[in-house]
Every structure is written in structure tokens, then in C-alpha cells.
Write a protein that binds this DNA or RNA. Structure first.
Ligand SMILES: [Zn+2]
Ligand SMILES: [Zn+2]
Ligand SMILES: [Zn+2]
Ligand SMILES: [Zn+2]
Lengths: 402, 402
DNA sequence: GTCGGTCAGAGTTCAGT
DNA sequence: ACTGAACTCTGACCGAC
């Protein structure tokens, strides 16, 4: 089981399988640097147990910040994973699983069936009738999909706890395995739209699993959802992309479905006569904002699922600037936001052991603001496109966008 | 030259090259005691800048009066001089010359004199040449108006401390006494524009009183200021209005100058032929957002000057989405924002005794986002006005807006 | 060549002022 | 809010085998 990198020149014996730095021979039967070996030895000897500060259990150990040591939990886990054994006769296999909340996979409909939803590429325009989808969403959004948590019947989750649970499920369900993801060279409009349909319907399922959302008056639900989905998708896609391709990469790849990724530099969009390059050009400034103001900050923030869920709560409930929102709704929204912020406080202080979380919280709130601004711009670009008759994408030019 | 302490000969490796006390090996590649090493580490990590109390920069660090700490400037300078380097690649520090304790008490000019700035109302349009103003601002913005704080020489204020100081001054200077304020029934374009000219120039003075802003490259200053002024004015006016009219009221009054207020429902704008009502109508949705999403939340928040200053810091330094901003600027911006958030933490925890401040902080950040969105809309409405030829206000249609 | 022991020198914490 | 003593943690080095 000797991994080979590039076969010849860079011998596998040269890099530390834990941290990626220069290794010097075998340590505890594994290629590793002396530092990692020493770390492993100390940890085992003193029976030290670590906890991942980020709570994800998948820190990237190859990123080293000057003064800071690498995440101990993840380093130890890596040591164990690659087969370091301090004592050959120790029979114990597969010692520790990360102290994460295991993602329970309750039943969520696997694929929604859409009656309409035929995509036609006609001339420069994509003709797609969104009405059936909108109808479906409007119906889906007023359902009640609240499910009790196993082993916790009788207990009502707080809005944020519930969101953490649902977002974990949502993300786990569609987390691509890094090796599975293929960077495609062509992307057809049909695939995009089909992906999007399913995405929106599953998002509707997500929000209707949240008690506070379900309790709203029915006519308030669709406007909230309309405001919610774009922002949520932006952060969720970004999170998945960084998870799949690692936090250290710095390119323009973006995961689209659960198995496909596009590379903004190389993927060609197949959209009938509409010029793929022309479209790309219109989106260039936006793309740079996405990478400069969203992906890069995310890369250094490395948000946990908890924080993603907190952002989701904010996207869903920051409805004060929307039209046709009733006072009763804003009162509930204020309550949800305040409770969630208080829980975030507890999360930071007690779980992340980060009593001075103001800076991190500020970055989070700033990201929320950036994402909402990106969504606005996305809409603007779409309008521009229609104006120039390059492309008509009814998705962004329908009741689905506020 | 062997230093003698208590008559015993000490090897050169035993004394701290900074303070002369007993050293304990190398620290940051220099013989020093742990205390000096810790001091150096803290200072570098927090990027603290000191000032010599005596102004000589030649304090004798070996003379210790118990209880009194040694001169921080000279201690830091010694650390640097003897070659302490926390990180090999940490190069330029430049602050090696003692900042002469100048007591530049150049007062804030009471009123700026503008050569141009003639307002003509010509038909429906307001003809106003902004160029002289822009020129003046561009000059003002690259000046250095940093003033030492009385009685606190030797310490450099943090960006937020400085901002608190400057914002307090700014607000106090133009706080209207509640009884003095008159709700005017007419508002002439000339008065508005004159008020605005003075306001912008004083704001330029404010930002150039902040060390971190002054340290920027000159070509970065105007773009930052351009992004800053609108948002700052929005929050400052709102704050003044609430202070003057009280937090209980719930009307549409808004303080304009330092003695005048307009009542959106009753004040008539005198703008030549341009229909006052027509203009008001265009602004109606915006006005409702200002009152619903800004004034009302502010009313319940009752922000302190410290929090207003924190918002100001955010407006000034959240420049990541701007064009033509250099990487070096964003690096500084990130540092300022992070430091300020950390200080806000301390303020909440130690001064306001509010350890669980997440909710309040979230409201603050959300207000920041609302204000930036209001400013964008303001610009949009102005563009709309020009489109319909109702009013041409070069203020919002010039280099002054990004 | 791999192991454990050792320790200088980093970072971190916290009581004292 | 700073200071500095006491603490933990890291990784380079060295001798043992
Ligand atoms: Zn390693
Ligand atoms: Zn980790
Ligand atoms: Zn010393
Ligand atoms: Zn001195």
C-alpha cells in the first residue's frame, strides 16, 4: 500500500503523509516527518485526547500558519488513518470516530417529479416555462415537514438547532466525494435547470422542516422562501466547493450538481445560439466578486456547519426590507434572530472555546451581506442579458426572485 | 566589557540585551529575559505602536523603579535594534525614529471656503458644479490631521479608539440643542448643498485624523472616502435626529443642518420648477425603508457613540467589493476590522457588562448592511430622477459616488 | 534508519497590579 | 489593560540499538 506520487521523480518516501512536509524515512511504519512522529509519540504516550476546534474533523493539515500549530485532533486522526501504530501488538483497530453529530438520514424524497419543466433552446433564448415549478414550490412551501428528532421526542428544538440539523442533513445528502467530482467541459442548459428544480424543491422541504417557518401564516411563506433560496444556495455551493476541492486551492472551479463541477475558465456552456463567451463576459465582474469577496474569506474562515446554519437563519429571517411582510412575521423574525444569536454566543464560548468571537461574528455577518449583494447583482446581470437579448432565463426573471 | 552585577562576573550570554536583567537563553534570536520576550511578542502580535514619554527615545531601560514599567517605546525600539525578529520575513518597520511629541494643535477649520460652488436653479435642473468641491476633497483626504490625545502621549490609539474620539468630537461639534432645532417649512437647494459641502469637508478631516487611514497610499484614500461618506452621514444624521427628538417619537422628522430639521410630511423643497411633491413621491419607498429598517431598529437599539464609531470603522474599511483597491489596502482593512471587533468585544464584556453580546452585535451588523443598501437605493433613485429629467443633482452623479 | 529522551524556545494562561 | 511568572506544546537534536 505504498502511494506513489508522479511515479518516479518525487518518491513517495519524500513527503510526510500527515502534514505533507518533507519526510525523513519511516516513523511508526509510516512515511512521516519527525515532527509528526514526535507528536504521535507524545500523544499516545500521554494518552492525550483532542477535540477539533472547528468541529468538522477535516482540517487541512497542509496549510500552516506561521505561529499556529495544526489542529491536534485532525493531526492525530490523520496519524491513525494512515496507519501509524506505536505498538505493533496493539490489536485495537479503528479507534476513534470524530466527535461530530452523526448525520441522521431521515427520509427525504429522492427526486421530485415535474410535469412541466420542458427546456427548449430556441434561437438565442432558453424557453423554459417556470410556472409549473413555481406552482409546485408554492404548494411545497406551505406543507409541514417537521420531523421529531430520534430519541428526543417531546423536546422542541430551537430554530437554530433545527436549522443545524436540517442543514447538516441537506449538505451530507448532497456532499460530493472529492474523487467523484468531475470537472465537465460542457454544461447544457437542461442539466442546469433540472439541477435547479430539484434543488429548490429540496430547499422548500428544508424550510418546511423548521417549526418557526411552518407556524407562519401561509401567505408569508413564499416571500420568505423567495428571498432565502438564492443566498442559501450561494453559501451552500461555496461550502461544498471548498470542502470538495480543499481550502488551499485557489481556482475558479465551482461544484454544480452533486457530481459535476465547472471550471469558469474552461467549461463551455451549451445554450443554443447564445454565445457562451459572451455570457461569461457579462458575468466576469460578478465572478471576481464571488471569488474575491466570498470564496477567499470563506477559505480563511473555514466555517463550521453550525455557522452555515446561522447564516441560513439570517437569510431566511432577515425579511425587514421585503414587501408585503406582516408585522406579526417581523416580530417572529426578530425573535428567531435574537435567539439564534444567543445560541451562537454559547456555541462560540462553550464549544469553540472562543470567548472573543466578535471578529469572527463580524466576518460572518459581512459574508451574509456580501452574499445578498451578490444575489442582487446576479439578478441585475440577468436583466441586462434579457435587455441585450442574449439569454432569457426565466429563473431569475420570475416570481422566484424578489 | 563584562557587565558586573553584584560583583559577580556574568557571561555575556546571561544578561538580557534589552533590560539588562538575567536572561534565559535566546528569545527571537536574541539573548533576553522572558519578560522582554513576552513584551516583544505581545507588541508585535497586536501591532502596538508606542511613543516615548520623554520624547528623547533614549530612556535607560536598566534603571527600574519597582512597580513602574519601563518606557514602552524605548523598550520596543531596543528590541528591534538588537535584532529581535518574530518572523524572519517580517521586514520593514520604519517607526524607528522617536515620534517627536509635537503638540500640533491645529484646530479643525470652522468653515471651509469654497471658491466655486455656485448653485443655480435653472428650469427643472439644479446646476451645480461639483468639480471644485471634489478637487478640495481630493486634496483634503490626503492630508495628515492626526492629533495626539492630551495626556496620553506615548500611546498610539487603536483605529477604533481613534474613531471613537473623532466621532465624539464630530458629533458634539454639530449636535443641535433640541430646543434650537426648528422644523422648517421650506428648504432651499442652496442651503442643502452648502450644508453638504461643509459636511463632506469635515468628514474628510475626520478620516485624516485616523492613523491607519493616513498611512494608506494616497491613491487609495479617495475611493475609500467615497464609499464612506454616504453611509456615515446616514447613521450620523439618524443618531442626531434620535438624540434631538428623543427615542420615543415616531415621526418623519429628520435633522438636516445643525439647527434645521425637515419633516418629510410637511416641508416643501424649493428647487426651482422641479415639483417638490414629485420628488418626494420618488423617494417615498426609500423613506419608508429608512424609517422602518433604520430608524425603528435604532430606536430600540439606542446605540452608544462607541457603537456608532464601530459602524463608522466598518463603513470606512469594508472596501473589499470596491474597484481599484490594492491588496495592501485590503490587508490593512482586514487588520483594522479585526482589531476593532476585538475591541468591541472588550467594550461589551467589560464596559457594558454584556457578555452575551452576539444578538446586539448582529443587529449592529445588520444595520450596517441596511444602511449600505439604502445608500445604493438613494443613488438609484437619483439616476431615475435624472432619467425623467426631474432633477439633476450632481452630488450623487459624480465622482463622489462609487 | 528508527526509536525515545531531552530541552530551548515558541505560544498560552492567569493572578497581580 | 498591561505585565511577567508559570505553564504547555513543538520540533530539532542526540545517543541507543
Ligand atoms: Zn509531518
Ligand atoms: Zn480539526
Ligand atoms: Zn529584559
Ligand atoms: Zn523612552
Amino acid at each position: 500500500m505504498h502511494p506513489m506520487i508522479n511515479g518516479a521523480t518525487l518518491s513517495a518516501t519524500d513527503i510526510c503523509l500527515v502534514c505533507g512536509s518533507l519526510a525523513k524515512g519511516l516513523h511508526f511504519q509510516v512515511n512521516s516527518c519527525r515532527a509528526c512522529a514526535a507528536f504521535y509519540r507524545r500523544s499516545v504516550k500521554s494518552k492525550l485526547v483532542y477535540r477539533c476546534q472547528r468541529g468538522t474533523g477535516r482540517c487541512d493539515l497542509s496549510i500552516r500558519i506561521k505561529g499556529k500549530p495544526m489542529c491536534r485532533y485532525c493531526r492525530m486522526k490523520k496519524c491513525a488513518d494512515i496507519g501509524m501504530r506505536i505498538d505493533a501488538d496493539m490489536g485495537h483497530e479503528s479507534t476513534s470516530s470524530p466527535p461530530e453529530s452523526e448525520t441522521v438520514a431521515d427520509e427525504v424524497p429522492e427526486e421530485y417529479v415535474l410535469k412541466g419543466g420542458v427546456v427548449q433552446v430556441e434561437g438565442k433564448r432558453i424557453i423554459y416555462d417556470v410556472k409549473p415549478l413555481i406552482h409546485l414550490i408554492k404548494e411545497a412551501v406551505i406543507k409541514n415537514n417537521v420531523q421529531p428528532i430520534k430519541g428526543l421526542s417531546g423536546v422542541t428544538l430551537s430554530p437554530l438547532q433545527r436549522m443545524v440539523h436540517e442543514v447538516s442533513k441537506f449538505i451530507a445528502q448532497r456532499t460530493p466525494k472529492a474523487c467523484d467530482v468531475q470537472v465537465v467541459s460542457e454544461m447544457r442548459a437542461e442539466s442546469c435547470i433540472h439541477f435547479q428544480e430539484q434543488y429548490l424543491l429540496k430547499l422548500a422541504h428544508l424550510v418546511t422542516s423548521c417549526e418557526y417557518f411552518v407556524r407562519l401564516e401561509d401567505d408569508q411563506k413564499f416571500p420568505l422562501f423567495r428571498h432565502f433560496w438564492g443566498s442559501f444556495q450561494q453559501i451552500e455551493r461555496a461550502y461544498q466547493t471548498l470542502t470538495a476541492f480543499g481550502y488551499e486551492t485557489n481556482d475558479f472551479r465551482m461544484i454544480i450538481g452533486d457530481k459535476q463541477a465547472i471550471d469558469m475558465d474552461n467549461t463551455k456552456f451549451i445554450l443554443g445560439e447564445a454565445d457562451s463567451d459572451e455570457i461569461k463576459k457579462l458575468f466576469t465582474p460578478l465572478r471576481h466578486r464571488v471569488f474575491g469577496c466570498l470564496m477567499n474569506p470563506l477559505r480563511s474562515l473555514k466555517p463550521s456547519i453550525f455557522e452555515i446554519a446561522y447564516m441560513a437563519i439570517n437569510f431566511l429571517w432577515t425579511c425587514f426590507e421585503l414587501n408585503n411582510i406582516k408585522l406579526s412575521t417581523t416580530v417572529i423574525a426578530e425573535e428567531v434572530l435574537e435567539r439564534s444569536a444567543n445560541e451562537l454566543h454559547n456555541y462560540y464560548v462553550y464549544e469553540m472555546k472562543l470567548p472573543n468571537y466578535a471578529a469572527r461574528h463580524a466576518v460572518l455577518m459581512r459574508l451574509i451581506s456580501v452574499i445578498e449583494s451578490i444575489i442582487r447583482s446576479k439578478k441585475d446581470v440577468m436583466i441586462l442579458m434579457r435587455l441585450f437579448n442574449i439569454l432569457e432565463d426565466d429563473f431569475f426573471d420570475s416570481e422566484l426572485v424578489d
